[in-house]
């Protein structure tokens, strides 16, 4: 009998307390976050980013190509992994050496890439939604390529029926058409521009 009273009292108290502290708990867990510093250092040593100006973005473009490959083979999990790597690549690009004007544009593009990539990370199981975010992500990478140049040729491939009403595009490092918006073996896509 006494035990039951104690138990119920403790249970109801803990409901109340957890409601009070749930917010600060969440905030705290954000601060202590998974030891990101450690993993970053490991990644850095395996995969150093080039210090040359035009090499700054090569990691970003390589990982974007992984995303294209994942979505064109209907693989939502690999798409999320690739998007996570895009976030990692963005976090390691240092814009301090950019011209002031370019830096402003770059930061605007980078924050947009981060937002859209994060949605792709968060939407395993909803490849349709991942593909919707590829539309904007591709436009952002296109703008980076235009602004800073590329060190390997990249093709802008347009599919008139994908994504937006007016059609959407993606960037490819080969002339072979692998449509990330429809996946499978869909052949919709036409090379509209070569960036080099």
């Amino acid at each position: 009998m006494n035990n039951t009273i104690l138990f119920v009292a403790a249970a109801s108290l803990s409901i109340v307390l957890s409601a009070c502290s749930s917010k600060s708990d969440a905030d705290m867990s954000k601060n202590i976050a998974p030891s990101s510093i450690g993993t970053d250092q490991v990644k850095d040593s395996i995969n150093p980013i080039s210090t040359e100006e035009n090499g700054k973005f090569s990691d970003l473009f390589a990982r974007y190509q992984n995303l294209i490959l994942a979505l064109s083979s209907d693989n939502d999990k690999e798409a999320a992994t690739a998007a996570e790597e895009i976030l990692d690549a963005i976090s390691r690009i240092n814009s301090d050496s950019f011209k002031a004007e370019d830096r402003v544009t770059y930061k605007d593009i980078a924050s947009n890439i981060e937002e859209n990539a994060q949605h792709i990370v968060d939407n395993v199981g909803n490849i349709k939604h991942q593909r919707e975010h590829l539309v904007i992500l591709s436009e952002d990478l296109y703008d980076i390529a235009k602004l800073f140049g590329v060190n390997k040729p990249i093709y802008k491939v347009v599919c008139a029926t994908a994504g937006k009403d007016s059609g959407s595009y993606w960037l490819s490092n080969s002339k072979e058409i692998k449509n990330p918006y429809y996946g499978g073996k869909d052949s919709c896509g036409e090379i509209q521009e070569e960036l080099k």
Partner: peptide, 21 residues
């Protein structure tokens, strides 16, 4: 927001409404 971010948001709003999400 910047024009880029507004466009990105507008694109997401359109898709979410179209997909009835």
């Amino acid at each position: 927001y910047t024009i880029r971010k507004i466009r990105s948001k507008a694109n997401q709003i359109s898709s979410q409404i179209r997909d009835e999400e």
